[in-house]
Simulated assay, not measured.
Amino acid sequence: MTAPHIGNTGFNDEDDESSRIWVAGYVVRDPAVRPSSWRSTGTLEDALTAQDVVGICGIDTRALTRHLRERGSMKVGVFSGAAAARPVAELLSQVTEQPAMVGAALAAEVSTDQTYVVPAQGERRHRVVAMDLGIKGMTPELMAERGIEVHVVPQSATAQEILALEPDGVFMSNGPGDPATATHEIEVLRQVLDARVPFFGICYGNQMLGRALGFGTYKLKYGHRGINQPVMDRATGKVEVTAHNHGFAVDAPIDRESETHYGRVRVSHVCLNDDVVEGLECLDLPAFSVQYHPEAAAGPHDSAYLFDRFVDLMSTSKGESA
């Protein structure tokens, strides 16, 4: 964490976006001695301890960030207690023998084990099936606020199981891992596209759409992290401040429309820092995606309109089939 003081606001039971902390290790410079927020129900250290997440402090995290900025992502280990008492050569070996992120299939590790439903708030307008590849809690919540009943299904769900729920739309969430390994998810999405069911994808879901359309993906030397990344909506020219957390990207041309098996596709959004593809839009069937996190958990609210766009897409699709 590059902010110098971490833990000032403590830890509460209201803002969780998942059932647990998913990082394997946590690195900070100066941990707060005590939280100072009235909403706090405990300390960050207590939460890390309770969830068995190792942490380390006293690190110049900004210097470390600059180091990684020049050299790219690296493997690392954080050891404490009895684990740290082992010989350095043994610890180093454990670090270097970690599997590479390229080729890692991790979505199944973070997905829900069974389907659950988040009911629509007020009148139900649409039913959406959301494949959980590492979904944040705010995502179905924002859909529910728009009158969407959300059926969150495991990563292992088949296209037949998804379509049997008769969804008005299908959603694929953010999540970890190399998108090139996601053969199951990509095949499911292709069957969804074949059925012309409206589709919306976020982050990993954007990479799923890219690969389903026939584009490649690649690992970024410098992953996009943080809540202040500038992205341009190429249809309007508007620049949005967006939240990012991705180490892979879609390899699609940004200077022209592409012809795919599913018709014409254009890159709808680009990152202004490095021209990385940040969104895709199908022009001949109802599907679009973005690489960043419009659910604003955490992050800015500039892109919340994308959930409204999904609603409009489903409403239009239902009107055409009526």
Rank of each mutant, 00 (worst) to 15 (best):
S19L: 12
S19I: 10
R20A: 14
R20F: 13
R20S: 14
R20K: 10
I21C: 00
I21E: 01
A24K: 13
A24F: 10
Y26K: 03
Y26S: 03
Y26W: 09
V27I: 15
V28C: 03
R29A: 13
P31V: 06
A32P: 03
V33A: 14
R34C: 11
R34H: 14
R34E: 15
P35F: 06
P35W: 05
S36I: 13
S37L: 08
W38V: 15
T41R: 12
G42D: 09
G42W: 04
T43G: 04
T43E: 05
L44M: 09
D46Y: 05
D46H: 09
A47M: 06
A47S: 04
L48N: 04
L48C: 01
T49E: 10
A50N: 10
Q51Y: 07
Q51K: 02
V54G: 01
I56K: 01
I56L: 08
I56N: 02
I56S: 07
C57R: 14
G58P: 02
I59V: 15
I59L: 07
T61Y: 01
T61C: 05
T61I: 00
L64V: 01
T65C: 10
H67F: 13
H67Q: 09
L68T: 04
E70L: 10
R71M: 00
R71A: 00
G72N: 01
S73P: 13
M74C: 11
K75F: 05
K75Y: 04
V76A: 15
V76N: 05
V76E: 02
G77F: 04
G77I: 02
V78C: 02
S80Q: 09
S80K: 08
A82L: 12
A82V: 14
A84E: 08
P87A: 04
P87Q: 03
P87K: 01
V88K: 12
V88S: 08
A89T: 11
E90C: 06
E90T: 12
E90G: 06
E90H: 08
L91N: 06
L91H: 04
L92V: 15
L92A: 13
S93F: 08
S93V: 07
Q94T: 13
Q94P: 08
Q94E: 15
Q94W: 10
T96H: 14
E97W: 06
E97N: 12
Q98N: 06
Q98D: 06
Q98G: 08
A100T: 12
A100Q: 13
A100M: 13
A100F: 13
M101Q: 11
M101N: 09
A104F: 08
A105G: 11
L106E: 05
A108F: 08
A108Q: 09
A108T: 11
E109H: 11
E109A: 12
E109K: 11
V110N: 00
S111V: 02
S111Y: 00
S111W: 01
S111R: 00
